[in-house]
């Protein structure tokens, strides 16, 4: 994962209204402290998704297990990318919580429903965050992740016997 590897902190702003100047390659990019707060809010939900997949995979088998294992790896990549962007902007990435209340899934159907709900929460937080972020490149990269969450939703829905892409616009309700 390339992460925010090209991001180097050039100067720090002190308040939420002061942009933090980042040098990325030969381009100057502004990431505000407000953006860091937004990214941390997204990261919190990614941590929840990682916990959900980690807890749910042992209750799955066959294709759903293979899919969930792959998706766990992709959620970890998202969390790594988000943490890199936050740190690159001079912020502190929120750590995972010690415990998550994931309900009490008992079988494959319960787990798939839990994972679908978690993915829905991710869609919610990304759709809310994307228009609020200041740098265009950061909005675009968050949309890249959102689209991947949409793909997860499609596979999870198909595993539950549902239409994999029921709406022309990915929304929270899927």
């Amino acid at each position: 994962m390339a992460g925010g590897s090209a991001l180097l902190l050039a100067a720090c702003g002190g308040s939420s209204s002061t942009p933090r100047k980042l040098i990325a390659g030969n381009q100057t990019i502004e990431v505000r402290a407000d953006d860091v707060d937004i990214l941390n809010g997204v990261l919190d939900v990614e941590h929840t998704a990682i916990a959900a997949y980690t807890a749910g995979i042992p209750l799955l088998s066959g294709r759903p297990a293979a899919a969930a294992t792959r998706f766990l790896g992709q959620e970890l990549s998202h969390a790594t990318a988000l943490s890199g962007a936050i740190k690159g902007a001079g912020g502190r990435a929120n750590p995972p919580q010690a415990r998550y209340d994931l309900g009490n899934p008992r079988d494959e159907a319960d787990v798939l429903a839990m994972l679908s709900a978690t993915e829905g929460a991710l869609v919610d937080v990304y759709l809310d965050a994307i228009p609020k972020l200041t740098p265009g490149w950061l909005r675009a990269d968050m949309a890249s992740i959102l689209a991947n969450e949409g793909q997860h939703i499609s596979v999870l829905r198909a595993a539950r016997g549902l239409s994999p892409a029921p709406s022309a616009f990915l929304t929270v309700n899927e």
Partner: peptide, 28 residues
């Protein structure tokens, strides 16, 4: 590219919703 370049918040959100749907299409 559009989400990076667009200025209007509502357009950005619509573009993100459509982009995610195109990703779903590719997967299916």
């Amino acid at each position: 590219f559009a989400i990076e370049e667009l200025a209007d918040d509502k357009l950005i959100q619509t573009a993100a919703e459509i982009m995610a749907n195109e990703g779903q299409h590719a997967t299916v």
